[in-house]
């Protein structure tokens, strides 16, 4: 009976450890993606969207509107890759400046970039995995056909 109790405890503890280390691994991976993404952000996005994602007046939208980012999570990869034209509403303000496409960015780079943006400037979106980006890009390519 006592042994039985001990085994259960050990099993629970090992389960907890596995779970904990997974979580830990995920956090490390998110941080790695974000670090890589920061460099890409400086090179590709910062000129217009600013060092703090603040945007610029009515020209370039800020990247601080978590509601917009969360409700458009599936479209973000294609926005980065293909650019954007036509009006969008961010932070209660309408923006209508053409965003240039970034055709040279690889899917993994888009994953890095969005993980950085999605976990900076007050956003908490978690990691954008390569699989998620590939699926999102495939979906918008199918839409465009």
């Amino acid at each position: 009976m006592r042994n039985h109790y001990l085994y259960t405890c050990a099993a629970l503890l090992s389960l907890y450890l596995v779970f904990h280390s997974c979580q830990h691994e995920q956090a490390i991976r998110t941080a790695q993606y974000a670090v890589n993404g920061q460099k890409l952000y400086v090179a590709n996005c910062q000129n217009c969207h600013g060092t703090k994602g603040e945007g610029l007046g009515g020209l370039y939208p800020p990247l601080t509107d978590s509601l917009f980012l969360n409700t458009h999570r599936e479209q973000l990869a294609c926005m980065v890759k293909n650019g954007l034209s036509g009006p969008i509403e961010v932070n209660g303000q309408v923006f209508d400046t053409e965003m240039p496409a970034n055709p040279a960015l690889a899917p993994i780079e888009i994953a890095y970039l969005l993980t950085y943006i999605g976990n900076s400037f007050g956003n908490t979106m978690g990691i954008f995995s390569l699989e998620e980006i590939q699926a999102a890009l495939a979906a918008c390519e199918a839409d465009n056909r």
């Binding site: 000129n47 217009c48 600013g50 610029l56 007046g57 020209l59 370039y60 053409e98 240039p100």
Partner: peptide, 15 residues
């Protein structure tokens, strides 16, 4: 106006 490189930084600073 549609300069993607240094202009946004310049105009942000001049603003």
């Amino acid at each position: 106006t549609h300069c993607p490189s240094i202009c946004p930084i310049m105009q942000r600073n001049l603003l």
